[in-house]
Every structure is written in C-alpha cells, then in structure tokens.
Design a binder for these strands. Structure first.
Lengths: 155, 155
DNA sequence: AGGAGCGCTGAGACTCATTGTCAAGAAAGA
DNA sequence: TCTTTCTTGACAATGAGTCTCAGCGCTCCT
C-alpha cells in the first residue's frame, strides 16, 4: 500500500507529463519535503529545509514549483495571519479550516460538516458557483489565554 | 437624525481626541470618502478619488489614516481575492462575509446567523478565544456562469 | 488673536515577498 | 548520443506597504 507521499509523487509526475513539463530533481525534492511534514510552510521555510539537506534550490524555483503543485491540487496555498503565503499538503478527505493564534502563531485545524453544508446552501441561494472557500479565525489559543491571565505577555 | 457618515465622523473625532491625535483635513476627507460609497476600496482607489476631488493626500497618509479607522472600528480591512487589502465602512448591525467572483471581480455580501453561531461554538470547543473571523468564498457569479455557458469568456 | 508645542503630512527612500529575465544546464525523445 | 525544449539560478525588477524627516498645521494656553 502506497504512502500518501508516494501517491502524491505519482500524481505530480502524471500532471507534469500531461502538460509537457519536465520531471526534475528540484520538483521532486520539493514535493517530498512538503509531504514529509504536517506543518504549514512558507517559501523561506522550504528554502531553509532544502539547504539543510544540502539540496540547493533557488527561491525562484521554489515559487515556480509551488505554483505547479497548487495548480495540480496537491498543495494548498493560504494566508495565515494575513501576512505572506503558507503552503501545506492536501490530504484527500481532510479538508479543514484554520484558527491562528495571534500571539504565538499556533495553527489549529478544524472542520465541521454543518458549516460546510451551510456554506454550500448559501452559495446556491445566491446562484454563486464556488470554487474556493477560505475560513480563518484569528484569536488567542488556550495556552496564550492562560498566559494573559497571569499577565505574562512579556514581549 | 444624523446620517451614518455624520455619526462616523463624530466617533472618529472622539477617538482622535481621546488618543491625543489631531483632527486634520486629510483624515476627515478620507473618512468622508469611505462613508460616501458602498464599494470595497483599496489604497489606490482612495488616492485616485482624492485626486479627482482635488484634495491631495499622500499615499503614506492614506495608509496611516486607514490604520486609525480600522483601530477605532469604523472601517474593515480584508483581502478580497487574496491580493492586496480592501477597505469598507463598518455599518453597525450589518456584519457580513464576502463572495468574490474570480472572473469579473464582483463582490457579494452575505450573512447567515447559523454560520455565525456554529463558528462561535467551534471556537468554544477548541478553547479558542476568537477576535476576528474571515470567511471568503471565491467562484463564479451568476452572470459569469451564463457567459461561460455561452463560451464567451473572451479575455 | 498670537505663539509655543507637538503631532501630521508629503516626498521619496526603503523593505520584503514575490515575479521576471536570460544565459547556461538538464530532461526526453529520436 | 544528439537535439530540442524546458528548467534552473543569479540577479534585477516589481509593487504593496512602511519609514524618515523637514516643514506644516492643529490645539491649547495666555
């Protein structure tokens, strides 16, 4: 039974071939890196991780490859905390939204069928054909609320 | 009975005084501009509109004033379509989320109590204290769906 | 009203994530 | 292997948003 990462690689290669694009070291290495973690990474994280593995990949290539991965549906691009973009692997059947702690940056993933269904209904009511949802809730996570109670927001 | 715009100005002036900030021509003019439209404006829109009215306001001042207006709750800042920020006046009792047409850029505002309530519950379940929600749905509006059916996506 | 004090503004430099350019380098098919 | 074509890396460029600072305009006091 193939791992998620292996299936993703297969799909990516298929996507590349279908579009007359080439299967390169850099592209595979980046895909691999993204699928080997559950974190939400930004372009710089990837650059650092590749460097740590002694695989040099330029910043431009990282952005170009991420675009491809988003286009073929293997990676999701979102703005956490309103700043630059973060990328995460897409796991079929694991759709989710994000809560982001504005103090420590912690990201909590959640998903709720009722929310999902209601959104779908609302789109129908407006004759709107949705292609992409983004729900993000910013606030304080449990730990940071405790810190605040103890007045220990030091920085 | 005061108009929304007049009430907003009163609140803004009060906010400025309370914070030892000055009530300037530029600040009032920008507030006025935002409250005289229902559109979602970006910084460049405001710059153009002020220029059209022959009131010169610099880009820096626009950003600075928008920050103030967001801080005092009179203006809402959001990303429509993932690109730069858009600003819109806040009308008490008219909370809403956005659908954005990816083809023509049309923005549909909607609000649903069930959605709102469910989001609140989910936060409680995660012991998360929310301070800011952002729900955005991208897709095709009714008109653009019709265009697509007629294969008239020309550009 | 006049003036001191202090925040504000405009112009332009600056930042920083992201994108474009182009010559040299690596896949893929013959 | 050869040739074509796509990719890459280095670096320049872009663009939204921010910072700086000298001069201006609010406020408030008298």
């Amino acid at each position: 039974m193939a791992t998620l990462s292996q299936r993703a690689q297969k799909l990516f290669i298929q996507y590349l071939r279908e579009n007359n694009l080439k299967v390169t070291q850099e592209r595979l290495a980046l895909l691999d890196e993204i699928f080997s973690t559950n974190e939400h990474l930004d372009a710089d994280d990837l650059l650092a991780r590749m460097k740590a593995k002694k695989k040099k990949v330029s910043r431009a290539t990282i952005y170009r490859t991420l675009d491809l991965l988003v286009q073929c549906g293997l990676v999701r691009k979102s703005r956490l905390g309103q700043e630059h973009y973060f990328y995460e692997k897409v796991q079929p059947g694991r759709r989710h939204d994000h809560m982001v702690c504005t103090h420590c940056g912690k990201v909590i993933e959640f998903w709720d069928p009722a929310l999902d269904e209601r959104q779908r209904q609302i789109c129908q009511e407006h004759n709107f054909r949705p292609s992409f949802y983004s729900l993000q809730i910013q606030g304080l996570c449990e730990a940071c609320q405790a810190l605040e109670r103890e007045s220990r927001f030091l920085d």
